[in-house]
Design a protein around this nucleic acid. Structure first.
Lengths: 173, 173
DNA sequence: CACTGGTTTCAGTATTTTCCGAAACCTCGA
DNA sequence: TCGAGGTTTCGGAAAATACTGAAACCAGTG
């Protein structure tokens, strides 16, 4: 039954590979997504060298993306006592992962958009011509909506898991 | 007061430029995002040549991205009667834009992920070792969550604007 | 049927992003 | 202060993506 170990390894490799491919779909670089997949399914924290080995990537690449994952808050480094090197482990709780990603995406995608829309709306506030009014109105509506989305994202990302499930259940019911 | 026309033009250019930059942040190509911004703020439908002119891009580029926007459902082509060439106009309703984007993103980001997770979970369903069980459990949880997200996305994208506002108001209140 | 105005495709080029590999850099213990 | 083990940085190579320009194509009209 050592066969099972092999099949597990295969399944894990598959997961890592596909998750990496998916990552590129959503504008996350492949290596970063792969490392995340790897650590999410690791039975124990892994060192930089283990990651390099498992994914066949260079030290520089592994390092950059480990730091990036830390910056996102998706993994953290742990120090095994008596050891000098760093080990990394991923948060495995799906709800935590979700809220972390949601917060980050909000910061990167929603907030800059709000800034642009707000400015464009402000600049055209006083316009009198139909064209000016129409443009302003479009900006205002977009700003309103995106601002709204921003608030919703905050709210959801701040929820505890149980509460979110309850809410969603009601929504879907 | 022709000055207002100038300022409006500047504001619009700014919007188009920034929206394009934002687009790249979310994995949408710059030109596509710019064309969308342009058409969202156009007082009337525009032809391919007008788009090329306004953004200083090649015909091929304009054409490709116009088709892509049509494929997403964010713009549509209209034929002015008596004219031979195609004109394009964007849906300007923010809620429509949102649901359209949401549907497309779900299709591109959520559905493929579900497939991968489902397969990895299935492949490890019968495993007996702790490592195998743990991996399976992780896949199962991810699949469950993503499936859930998928349903929520459907539900929200299918809502009428008014209803969504009502719901969100309750959520934020 | 051939001309005109318009659309679509695509090979090659430019730009952007990602990755490697190696050197520079820390930090602790001897 | 040196050396070993480990981390960080970064210039340039490689890969992926976007864009151009021009040719092929298509549909009405004279």
């Amino acid at each position: 039954m050592n066969d099972e170990a092999t099949r597990l390894q295969e399944a894990r490799d598959e997961f890592v590979a596909h998750w990496g491919a998916l990552g590129t779909q959503w504008g996350i670089n492949r290596t970063m997504a792969q490392i995340h997949a790897l650590l999410m399914t690791a039975p124990a924290p892994m060192s930089t060298d283990e990651v390099m080995e498992a994914l066949s990537v260079s030290r520089g690449n592994a390092h950059t993306n480990l730091k990036e994952l830390i910056a996102w808050g998706l993994i953290r480094s742990v120090v095994k006592k008596g050891e000098r090197r760093e080990y990394f482990e991923a948060d495995k709780d799906v709800w935590n992962i979700f809220t972390t990603v949601a917060k980050e995406r909000k910061r990167r995608e929603i907030e800059p958009a709000l800034g642009v829309l707000h400015q464009c709306a402000a600049e055209t506030k006083e316009m009198e011509t139909p064209a000016g009014k129409q443009f302003h109105e479009q900006m205002r509506q977009l700003e309103e909506f995106v601002g709204f989305a921003s608030k919703v994202a905050d709210k959801v990302a701040g929820m505890k898991h149980g509460f979110a499930v309850q809410l969603a259940a009601k929504l879907l019911g």
